[in-house]
Design a protein around this nucleic acid. Sequence first.
DNA 1: TATGAATGAGGATTCATTCAT
DNA 2: AATGAATGAATCCTCATTCAT
Lengths: 240, 240, 240, 240
Amino acid sequence: MATGETTNGKRKGARAAARPQADSQPRTTRGRKTRERLLSAARTMFESKGFLDTRVSDICDEAGLAHGTFYIYFPTKEDIFYTLVDEVVADRFLLTAVPDDFEGNVADRFAYTLRQYFDEMRRAKDFSRIVEQVATFDEHMRENRMAIRRKFRGRIQHGIERLQQQGAADPDISAELTAEAMVAMINNFAYINLILGERDDLDLDQVVATLTNIWARSLSLDIEKANANDAKRAPKTRKT
Amino acid sequence: MATGETTNGKRKGARAAARPQADSQPRTTRGRKTRERLLSAARTMFESKGFLDTRVSDICDEAGLAHGTFYIYFPTKEDIFYTLVDEVVADRFLLTAVPDDFEGNVADRFAYTLRQYFDEMRRAKDFSRIVEQVATFDEHMRENRMAIRRKFRGRIQHGIERLQQQGAADPDISAELTAEAMVAMINNFAYINLILGERDDLDLDQVVATLTNIWARSLSLDIEKANANDAKRAPKTRKT
Amino acid sequence: MATGETTNGKRKGARAAARPQADSQPRTTRGRKTRERLLSAARTMFESKGFLDTRVSDICDEAGLAHGTFYIYFPTKEDIFYTLVDEVVADRFLLTAVPDDFEGNVADRFAYTLRQYFDEMRRAKDFSRIVEQVATFDEHMRENRMAIRRKFRGRIQHGIERLQQQGAADPDISAELTAEAMVAMINNFAYINLILGERDDLDLDQVVATLTNIWARSLSLDIEKANANDAKRAPKTRKT
Amino acid sequence: MATGETTNGKRKGARAAARPQADSQPRTTRGRKTRERLLSAARTMFESKGFLDTRVSDICDEAGLAHGTFYIYFPTKEDIFYTLVDEVVADRFLLTAVPDDFEGNVADRFAYTLRQYFDEMRRAKDFSRIVEQVATFDEHMRENRMAIRRKFRGRIQHGIERLQQQGAADPDISAELTAEAMVAMINNFAYINLILGERDDLDLDQVVATLTNIWARSLSLDIEKANANDAKRAPKTRKT
DNA sequence: TATGAATGAGGATTCATTCAT
DNA sequence: AATGAATGAATCCTCATTCAT
């Protein structure tokens, strides 16, 4: 025992020490499967009981594994949650990209993106609710959410600025604040109505049309001008 | 998290047994003062540590009272929180009412309300954050929040419908969905920017102007027509 | 929850946070009694099972208290041990002081001190064994032991130096190394024979005589000269 | 700590069930090498983290082997430690033997032995510290230590008795107690100063001289007489 | 009312050891 | 022989809540 070691050494030392190999990638197929089982069970439990009410043992029970097994793969409950988020949510932003061969004007594109986003939210409804929950007390998760939001806002802001440059949108409005407002509107609309499911009877087509309309009007969007520019910018998508 | 779940589950099995008189109004002056001290201490602690991290003993320590004293006044930690919410947040909705003698058109009125709301949010910034946190896992709190939101949305929706009837707003838009979108926009804008303080440098005047503009444009608001009607409806505010 | 709070907040935060009031002095008689019961039970358990094998719950069971009660009074098992050591061992050094009216020469004084020390070791035999155990892995305890040892050695060294100045001891030996050797001899003799009880049949009188003799001879002590000086130094003890 | 207790109790209830062939000598070269790697890794870990803080998995990691491999060679952590002790410490006693052709009187011989012992202690400083640690809670180890000590003491006692018979040492002192005291002095001096390294600046030559002097004086050793006898006893070392 | 001591269910985590491959 | 996944008993510690005074 190195002089200057921790006090007791037995428990304390062990506890403080770097976690063994937890979170390491399993080396065998069996291990990989077990890890998957844990992730799947964790998602099930988080979605049904929430993050706070889910115990590590709940996850293990659900996965049909001993308690100790959990710690071979994940150091804490937080970690398995982060991993889930990365796998489930991370690429959500990418999903909303408009395909290259998309046919339609700038408003159609906005509507398309919106629809993608809403569909994804509906799909991952339960998990998304938990993500929001965790973000209210977990700094790490909050930052994660904010980063995605900033990206999202940046994209909208950038779109507005381009339209302004094209003379297709009111040059006097603040692209930044308007974008911020649009993100707030979209996110919260989805959270309240799709995730919390406050109103299950919503017609998503109508919703998308309404929000797209708000967006267009708030910019005083001139679709003709925008279209003209679009055509010039990406002629390849127009090739017969 | 199954809707209707307990708050956080930690003490699930805890004795929910016969509580003496907890939560009853204290009969003596001294008792009333103690209750106030607890409420004040609770708010301080909730705001600084969050709901989950605040222990009943933290509240008592902050209030300079023995742990047991707490239960004379409140049966659980949740209860003191609800009480606080009722006292702090309850009348938030009322605060946004436009005074009778308000001078200005319908957009000014919207802007005024918005400003009131934002100011209040800024004022109760810390507490509001905790309310949002609790609403993500506490059914009771969530319902509370939704009720306020529904009221808020109803007011906006009603306003839109009236403007439509007056021929001052596009009759083809869905007043309901548009109102829902506006509430989402306003609430989330305030939450992210004022409560979480993502951007502390915001010029509230500009924000209010931007959001009001979005609202107006999304309705294709015709202020002249709206004004005319307003004048007829409430001539008393125009007297002098 | 202050922005920038810890990650999860629920468990982690709590665990990392400053322990509540543990280790505070109990305010009531009942509390003081309970603390005493815990200390007494801890000593019993430590002595019978050793430090490592004693569980906090063992102590509580022995004391007839609930597990949680322990943590009202002591933050960890280490702490209750330190407290015990302070109460049981701390003044061991003082115990070996020779009384003011002691009759006898310098060798008698040495023998007296030795006897005191041995008696005390025998008395606290079981606890002393545990102290030695803990000192092998607990830095805090080790330092505690070393400090006492340094004091002890200092006293012996000082005694040798004085005798050398008086011309009563060989001036050519290293007072420091000789003192160190004497302490090693005394401590280890006591540890092996009295604490571990390797040989229960020891005649302490003979042991004290033997060790005193070794000490005297190793200094080439001249008792006559030492006595003469002693008489001069402390005539009051000689006043008939 | 009840004598005969398990080492540390942690895994008391652990399955002490049928161990396959553990501890058997490996039959292949590869097996022998693996066993060596484990022993070497174990020593490294024990020396750096102490016995209690060293996990079986630490040893395996250090050895670059899978955790399961350990149990092919050693049934428990204790066992690999005992094996190490046997290999590292066992012959320590032998090392202190004075060579046949040693030139010098009886005090020189004592000094030589002492020096050998101190050198060896310094060499195996880290491991020795751990051995002392384990001896405080492991009955098996304690007995091991005591056996060595008894041998050591026996040798010194025997030496004293012979000198007394030769008329070279005070016949009135207890050879047994004096020997016990000398062993205590030597062991503890080495433990505190060489193993714990309380004082790193020690001049070993001076230390050996001082302790040898103490030994000689405590016997009232008459070197001349002792030499004379020595010469008679072992004339062969004088041949040439 | 107020106090503060006592309770004990509850959950996280570790790690020696076994086992299937 | 070697691997590394799986096990689960064991222990620590917290804190909401009750109770005796």
